[in-house]
């Protein structure tokens, strides 16, 4: 029991340090997508929500497991989809201008307005 707890605490502490290290290099440009990405990663709680559906044995247990599954699935699916949607919009060049610098049509309209 205690050795399991000790292992868990060790993993936790090391993961926190990795988190500090990995994040502190991200430029401000990407802070919003980063927050959203971190947000989707905590959707891993879906694994926990799935496992409690196994140990549930009465009505209360099932209700808790159901709500947890709804919440966690919403977190994980929504989080990844919206992060992907945001990152897809980041372009090095204007869309539809393969050679770079603002090669746009004369009326200047293109892309979503």
């Amino acid at each position: 029991m205690t050795s399991t707890l000790l292992t868990d605490i060790t993993i936790f502490v090391l993961a926190v340090l990795v988190g500090f290290e990995v994040i502190s290099k991200v430029p401000a440009t990407l802070h919003t997508p980063l927050m959203s990405a971190a947000n989707s990663i905590h959707g891993i709680v879906l694994v926990g929500a799935m496992l409690i559906a196994v140990t549930a044995g009465n009505a209360l247990g099932y209700v808790l497991a159901f709500i947890a599954a709804v919440f966690a699935a919403m977190n994980v699916v929504g989080g990844y989809v919206v992060t992907g949607r945001m990152l897809k919009m980041f372009h090095r060049r204007p869309v539809g201008a393969p050679d770079g610098r603002a090669a746009v049509s004369a009326d200047g309209r293109e892309g979503p307005a």
């Binding site: 993993i11 993961a15 988190g19 500090f20 990995v22 994040i23 980063l34 971190a38 891993i44 926990g48």
Partner: peptide, 18 residues
């Protein structure tokens, strides 16, 4: 579950820095 511990700790740390 280690996956939850590691992922949660990562987000906790990154959220703190942000």
């Amino acid at each position: 579950n280690w996956a939850l511990i590691i992922a949660g700790a990562l987000v906790g740390a990154s959220g703190g820095i942000l």
